[in-house]
Design a protein around this nucleic acid. Structure first.
Lengths: 222, 222
DNA sequence: CGATGATGGATCGTATACGATTTCGTACTT
DNA sequence: AAGTACGAAATCGTATACGATCCATCATCG
């Protein structure tokens, strides 16, 4: 039995998704069906499907008879995405907390220790990557697949826009690591679901509000 | 200038969406591209696109080389959908609360009064419809479009499954109306965002837990 | 009689083709 | 010189066509 190749539309989806996440395709970039199809060596039909999928996830915008462009990122979109993720990831982390094994917790602590080290030898890309993994460990056990799916989508969007901007807020990384530690302590102490949720959500709204404050904007009401 | 007709794929999407929401297409029903295309008088290509869109929203499942079926509904899916909606709608309602006008509040109260009347002359479909509208009034002003979109998707899924089952839990309708009243009072009193969120979320988890209890299952941890 | 393998029909996945729509450059008018 | 009208090129939307894959049926073999 041969391993069946992924469908063309799947390949197209993965290619575009990756490029957007990596920031190779900047917001506003025009995605032309024919061009992408030629590059992939397939027809426009599967590419169309891939693009509609990306649209459903909010990574690209699509206009009838006009075409697709990588979703523009402005302060407002960032705000909305972070706010949504605060809500959803908070819930996911809270639901996952009672299901975390000792191994999971150890991994999370190890990653956070690395994050702390990262603070010394300033390395933002690596920090971001570790940070992603840290949170993934905490929410991945969420037993509700819908919520988990929404968390993934939120992170995708966030990564897509991080690649182009919004990368860094001065003192935030350090307090972030502290908040991680606090969150882990809470979970280890067997805190209630709502306590964990509150802490996980606050962690994200803190980042958002730090950004908003830097721009002289009011904090999120959440 | 003539109003341009909606694209075929849009038409196909709307047709299928409506049928699923109305329960004409029961879960497990097989959606065959060619058949639908013939019925719509178009080719399979736009139908494909419509189905992929429905898939992204969780209304149908799609397997490679197999095809699409209307998403099966089981207790677990219902649980997960309600749980997700509890989180998302709670946040949406909380964010919308400070933006509700006196007119909005009056409309909500009027709808709830009708709901109360509905309790007498037992009319479940109408009750459900009014209930939908009641909540829509409360969350529709949510300033975060992502969250709003997720609420809409959640309700869509819920409606799709309500059509086939899960329609009624004995005493729930009456307490539901009371909770609505309480929620409106909270908002009128200018309660904090987190209080409104808690109340709105509780309203939904109460329904979910009533269902779970009826089946002898443990309540949601949220 | 049950398991295995071949065969055909149904359905999907994608290439190609072409009409429809938008966009952009250019010539013409005021 | 600015604005408008026209036409060509680019791109999208969808029909048609055909190979690929799956599933059900039935024949064959142990």
């Amino acid at each position: 039995m041969t391993t069946l190749a992924p469908s063309k539309s799947q390949q197209a989806y993965e290619l575009l998704h990756e490029r957007i996440a990596k920031g190779e395709l900047v917001p506003g970039y025009r995605l032309v069906l024919g061009t992408i199809a030629a590059e992939l060596g397939c027809s426009t039909v599967p590419v169309r499907e891939a693009i509609r999928r990306l649209e459903a996830e909010g990574l690209v915008t699509f206009e009838r008879n006009i075409g697709a462009t990588v979703a523009a990122v402005d302060a407002e979109l960032y705000l909305h995405t972070m706010e949504t993720l605060a809500v959803i990831e908070g819930a996911a982390t809270a639901l996952a907390a009672p299901l975390l094994s000792a191994v999971d917790m150890a991994e999370a602590r190890a990653i956070n220790a690395e994050l702390r080290r990262c603070l010394e030898d300033f390395d933002p890309p690596r920090f971001t990557q570790l940070n992603d993994r840290f949170h993934a460990v905490l929410y991945e056990r969420c037993p509700n697949p819908h919520i988990l799916d929404l968390v993934h989508r939120g992170w995708n969007r966030l990564n897509a826009m991080r690649a182009s901007s919004f990368s860094h807020i001065p003192g935030r990384a350090r307090s972030s690591v502290e908040e991680h530690e606090h969150l882990l302590d809470l979970i280890d102490a067997g805190a209630s679901t709502s306590e964990v949720e509150k802490a996980a959500r606050a962690h994200r709204t803190n980042t958002l509000n730090a950004y908003l404050a830097a721009d002289g904007m009011p904090p999120s009401p959440l």
